[in-house]
């Protein structure tokens, strides 16, 4: 379970998260929608401790992310995150990209790590690209590799940050299919997305972010069919 309570985050004088509270239960899929600069990416980075916070608390399975004694490297094994930019490690092959963390962080043997990596890469449809370097892959393939790389750590949670928005339209479908597969398997996920149709289809809850606050949260039906807040309605009208 991910518990986010009254989290405050600012960069200098700019308040980016303003008392955000959100709990995500095991097996749940929560989508975050909202305009540019509303703090969606920042929230994901706070959840795995890539960014410090200035107030409130975040706990993952009861472990305080921002407490002084927390072993963040250990905590992050449980939280996979995939970013908008593909962030392939360009000097490593596809297989090496995926085996790196299991080998270095989980101390698996090469054979063990490769078995898991091959399985994950086949899962996302890249079983025939093991020896390729990322520079030779399309954006969609690189993004699916990034998903396999995160999954190879067997995380309990997956955070996705607009993973399709830097892709050519014809490549979006294959990445969404991969995420749909994960949602179907019961993975606990938080996804920041601009794909409203997809959010509606896979989410248990949808949160609308505005100016660093969760402005409205509810079931996909509620948010997309009968939003309570005028700002939510305005945002949806602007993107749909």
């Amino acid at each position: 379970m991910i518990e986010i309570e009254r989290v405050k985050k600012s960069f200098g004088s700019l308040t980016v998260l303003d008392e955000v509270s959100l709990s995500v239960n095991t097996g749940e899929v929560v989508s975050i929608i909202g305009g540019s600069g509303s703090g969606k990416s920042t929230l994901l980075m706070c959840i795995n401790g890539l960014e410090p916070i200035q107030g409130g608390r975040i706990a993952v399975d009861g472990i305080e992310v921002h407490a002084a004694g927390t072993d963040l490297n250990k905590l992050r094994r449980n939280i996979g995150i995939v970013f908008q930019q593909w962030n392939a490690f360009p000097h490593l092959t596809v297989l090496e990209n995926v085996t790196l963390a299991p080998r270095k962080v989980l101390k698996m043997s090469r054979a063990e790590a490769e078995a898991i990596a091959v399985q994950q890469l086949e899962h996302v449809g890249l079983g025939d690209k093991l020896k390729a370097f990322p520079g030779k892959l399309s954006g969609g393939q690189q993004q699916r590799m990034a998903i396999a790389r995160a999954l190879a750590m067997s995380p309990k949670y997956m955070l996705f940050d607009e993973v399709t928005s830097a892709l050519d339209p014809q490549l979006v479908g294959e990445v969404l299919d991969t995420m749909r597969l994960l949602a179907g398997e019961g993975m606990t996920m938080i996804l920041v997305t601009h794909e409203m149709g997809f959010a509606r289809e896979v989410s248990d809850r949808v949160a609308f972010f505005k100016s660093g606050k969760i402005h409205e949260i509810g079931s996909p039906q509620q948010i997309f069919e009968s939003p309570q807040m005028p700002e939510t309605r305005a945002f949806l009208n602007s993107v749909l």
Binding site: R76, G80, I81, N87, H91
Partner: peptide
């Protein structure tokens, strides 16, 4: 920086990030 964050988000330590990602790149 985003590549380094991706490495750290996988659980690599600062030192492992330096050795496995930053140094070869």
């Amino acid at each position: 920086l985003t590549t380094r964050r991706a490495a750290r988000s996988l659980g690599l330590t600062w030192w492992q990030d330096m050795k496995e990602i930053v140094y070869p790149m």
